[in-house]
């Protein structure tokens, strides 16, 4: 049976770098316990292009519209592990965000969502737009409160637009829409906090999510009848390309650049772990 993964996130949330590193691990088969390539049956040119850039320590932008092609990948886990076919299209964050504004999905995307077996929701820790209250800003600035004016009296004020909605509201909106449409009675959502190396605190990914995106965290906890969730911290590059370039180049096995953290687990290089869990490829995993 084909396990259909839905990788979604807003622009710049780290999906493409994740896919590049994921394809490297699957194809190189050098991470113990990770999903491994069983056999090639379909063109994987865009995956190879992404992987090459990732190996060269270049930014892994989405390549072309072909990147949305759905390529089935036949994988296996371990020497005696079960086989599975996964599809993990690299959907453009820009399209996903625009669809939230236009309030419509392409029919093909809606159908893909409907048939998905698990979801990976990407968040970049440095691309979180907050909803800062004016009163809080005044309080922090320590300025005297100004005479209240009615709406419209401040000439520089902006009208509301859905593009300006805080990141966590967009993500909840998105995951609500997915949950409303996905056919499975119950499904899994793996939240991938990308660029995890940027997080200074030694907190767990779940704790980070509850602190930085509390609405999303509450939603995932409350929707336990409909979905099961986990939060992973993933550094697909292993560091910042400019700052850590020399260190990253010195790593002998490129897979070991990758860092994956899940609550109550040590750091691993298995970037397939979120996929395996979300798609239920390995039911034995805790």
């Amino acid at each position: 049976m084909t396990q259909q993964g839905l990788l979604i996130g807003l622009p710049g949330s780290g999906k493409t770098t994740f896919v590049a590193a994921l394809w490297h691990v699957i194809a190189s088969q050098d991470v113990e316990g990770a999903l491994a390539l069983q056999i090639l049956e379909a063109p994987v040119d865009h995956l190879n292009t992404l992987r090459s850039r990732w190996l060269r320590l270049e930014e892994t932008h989405r390549t072309s519209s072909n990147a949305e092609d759905i390529t089935p990948i036949h994988v296996t886990q371990g020497e005696e592990g079960a086989t599975a076919t996964i599809v993990i299209p690299d959907l453009a964050g820009e399209s996903i965000q625009q669809d939230l504004i236009d309030r419509k999905w392409e029919t093909t995307f809606a159908e893909y969502v409907c048939g998905s077996t698990g979801v990976l929701l990407f968040v970049h820790p440095e691309r979180v737009d907050d909803s800062w209250a004016i009163t809080d800003a005044i309080e922090i600035a320590g300025e005297e409160p100004q005479v209240e004016q009615s709406a419209g009296e401040e000439s520089d004020s902006t009208e509301w637009h859905p593009a300006g909605v805080p990141t966590q509201v967009k993500l909840v909106d998105l995951i609500q829409l997915v949950a409303d449409r996905i056919k499975r009675q119950r499904f899994r959502v793996a939240v991938v906090v990308s660029a995890w190396d940027l997080i200074d605190d030694q907190e767990s990914p779940s704790a980070w999510l509850a602190k930085e995106l509390p609405l999303l965290s509450q939603f995932l906890l409350s929707a336990s009848r409909r979905l099961e969730s986990r939060v992973y911290g993933v550094s697909a590059q292993g560091g910042e390309l400019l700052k850590d370039g020399d260190r990253l180049k010195a790593v002998i096995k490129a897979s070991e650049r990758i860092q994956v953290v899940h609550d109550n687990s040590s750091v691993s290089h298995d970037i397939t772990a979120p996929i395996r869990w979300a798609l239920n490829v390995d039911e034995e995993e805790n």
Partner: peptide, 17 residues
């Protein structure tokens, strides 16, 4: 979100309303 906008910094207002 529409109702909350004019009380947020993103509205560029100096006072919330």
């Amino acid at each position: 979100e529409q109702r909350a906008h004019h009380a947020r910094v993103a509205s560029r207002r100096l006072t919330p309303t």
